[in-house]
Design a protein around this nucleic acid. Sequence first.
DNA 1: CTGAAAGCGCTTACAG
DNA 2: CTGAAAGCGCTTACAG
Lengths: 339, 339
Amino acid sequence: MTTHYGARPTMKDVAAHAGVGLKTVSRVVNGESGVTPATAARVTAAIGALGFRRNDGARTLRTGRTAGVALLLEDIADPFSSTLSRAVEDVARGHGSLLFAGSSGENPLRERELALAFCARRVDGLLVVPAGEDHRYLLPELAAGIPVVFVDRPARQIDADAVLSDNAGGAREGVEHLIRHGHRRIAFLGDLPHIHTTAERLRGYREAMAAARLPVDEAWIASGPTDAAAVTTAVDRLTSGPAPVTALFTANNRITFGALQRLPALVARPALVGFDDLELAALLSPGLTVIAQDPAGLGRAAADLLFRRLDGYDGPPQRVVLPTRLISRGSGESAPAVL
Amino acid sequence: MTTHYGARPTMKDVAAHAGVGLKTVSRVVNGESGVTPATAARVTAAIGALGFRRNDGARTLRTGRTAGVALLLEDIADPFSSTLSRAVEDVARGHGSLLFAGSSGENPLRERELALAFCARRVDGLLVVPAGEDHRYLLPELAAGIPVVFVDRPARQIDADAVLSDNAGGAREGVEHLIRHGHRRIAFLGDLPHIHTTAERLRGYREAMAAARLPVDEAWIASGPTDAAAVTTAVDRLTSGPAPVTALFTANNRITFGALQRLPALVARPALVGFDDLELAALLSPGLTVIAQDPAGLGRAAADLLFRRLDGYDGPPQRVVLPTRLISRGSGESAPAVL
DNA sequence: CTGAAAGCGCTTACAG
DNA sequence: CTGAAAGCGCTTACAG
């Protein structure tokens, strides 16, 4: 090892060390044909001796392809996001591509900042679980040929590829399930109302209630922050008073989690169906009934679409919708405590 | 927008459009001083008109700093990994750095492949949850001044920074807890034995047993694959026969998860303490007693150390050990069913 | 089979 | 305050 601390050998150094031209080193490094075994051996030896590693940044500058894609999530620490992320990584790997990951934290400014930083790195493509309300800032990138696929929520103000869950259909199925078990007073607990998935799931809730000709008291709809304290407050309000609800539909995993924490403290435990599965759901008593999404499927479908675009597919923006799945485990099958 | 599909405007294009020199554009883009407001305005207008975005790859080539760090995990979909990842991301963000993430899948070849790919991108630094047995392949990178910090497990065959949990101490505390509640026949269920954390946790188990002068039957130690089927088999074997164990110490979250699935099927439910916390642990019946690690703390400490190195700190390789925490919730406090 | 020249899009040093 | 030249480490297109 003759490298100095902080200095990396370049192809030029390798060429000098091996006594060949720069282009010959390039050929060996890239496995191109047309180099005699003897020459190649000299180059290989020099590479080893100097600890040379090609600078892919320089390569990118010349070839234009980064071999990297970026994934923008709400929060990588959330199980939904991390499962999706892993699926994307696996697809990217199959295409020889590395993954940049960033968490927007549901902050539109941060989303934009991250997306543009990735674009400045000239990633080959972008996968975005959007937080923002306006994605026109991506127009120059799209015009420059960087494909962008939206995941979980569609783009706003621009027409772009999107891979989504059947949010309305899933919520409808969940609420129908509660109705089928005798519930008529059913609460909807959702995330912030402007979020696309919240709106869609609420739509599914309303559709199910309407289809069963059940009136909806607007007081049954709690859409807001999803921290434990907020959910506790909402659960307490909904399950108390003269005419409490007998069932809860919790519209995402954080809300379900919050509600589960609170339920044991209640006198009459309401039935519960949650949107999104939780890992230990089957081990609770009662088991947790959910509308399960397929985060890995979303990630795969989105990444597949992105790489098809990178391979030249040039059709109009697509919208892919993946089905959800009802999993009955007990919490959603109890009859109303009060009739 | 006058950009053509697939073509990105460069500083040269902006300069021509604004009727200024290249360097003036560079100054405006980078917010350097010494440009009249009028000139700056012309440049800014040209940037907007052309949809120009600086190519950070080209910038990197000249400056040598990538403003990106890489994080190599076992599996980003695992809650431990994803929480750690988010903490690293937050620290990186504070330093203006983006994050590359990759999952090695506990495969040494894949780890090496990913690490070298990140190095070829000339990331500023590397954070590694190692899967491999020999990290000498990183020597040229370290020599070139790329700092590498190992997380959760130390490097092998090289001397490098490492941020670890107190695995032996945590396991010892968990097993002592079971002993304190009357258990004498305690099983250890671990991951593959060659993994550093497995070995350390087993060491803690043996220390606790020895300190209490309890004999250890080697048949009580099951170290191997952590899939549900393997864990089920192990649990069944350990809890049956003429002299079953009365308590289980499950040495990571996947094993705890597998054991929890199986316990309801057993006649006599053994006590259980798991290493790593699970999200719904408090809602199970009985609640799950665990030795909790601090994955976010590990990520933060490792990232802090990495950025200190990037800021010039040049001390000898450090080893940081973070404490674990016993959380009693019920499953670890039941007395032996059989005495 | 081999290599010298030009250029990718920036920044660094320098000169006006 | 402004810009022309050189160069970062590679690959592309050519020539021998």
